[in-house]
Amino acid sequence: MSLAAAASQGFLSPSGVEIAFVLVGIATLGAAVVSVTTKQLVHAALWLVVALGGLAVEYLLLTAEFIAWVQVLIYVGSVVVLLLFGLMLTKAPIGRSPDADSGNRWAALAVAVAAAATLVTVVIDAFRSTWLDLDGAVQGSAEVTGISLFRHWVLPFEALSVLLLAALVGAIVLSRINRGRER
């Protein structure tokens, strides 16, 4: 497809979109790293918001508008709020907690570094000269995505409704304090 075009595009002459993508990407990655290392539990959730928001910007830069809005709505709007609620309900300490990391830290670091080395090597090897053409028709407007969803992906979509319902029921039944039947 657009592999041929890649040859003409060097890494040393970045386009505007690329510069924006890389900058936002660095910010996203930084926020993610802080989120998994900070000792302040609530801050971790807030840094996660930054990272997820950064990803939404990246989606926009990749012309996937619909996904970007869904990302903002679902993640930033509800998931993080849920997580914060969870932190409150489990009486997580506000402020620094010295034992935020488990004893497994070094094993975790080793596995993560090994995984990163593998994945990055493979990905760079695979895509080092692949050009992503963003100039054509919009790929991810709400209309395009919606049409493809209902034309080609009806079955998983339907199955997903069962999933959501089950998750809802499951979450309710688990978090309901024991009462009702046995009383």
Binding site: V123, T130, W131
Partner: peptide, 10 residues
């Protein structure tokens, strides 16, 4: 845009 950027970020 080079596909490497999003792929490596991911």
């Amino acid at each position: 845009m080079h596909l490497v950027y999003p792929a490596v970020l991911a």
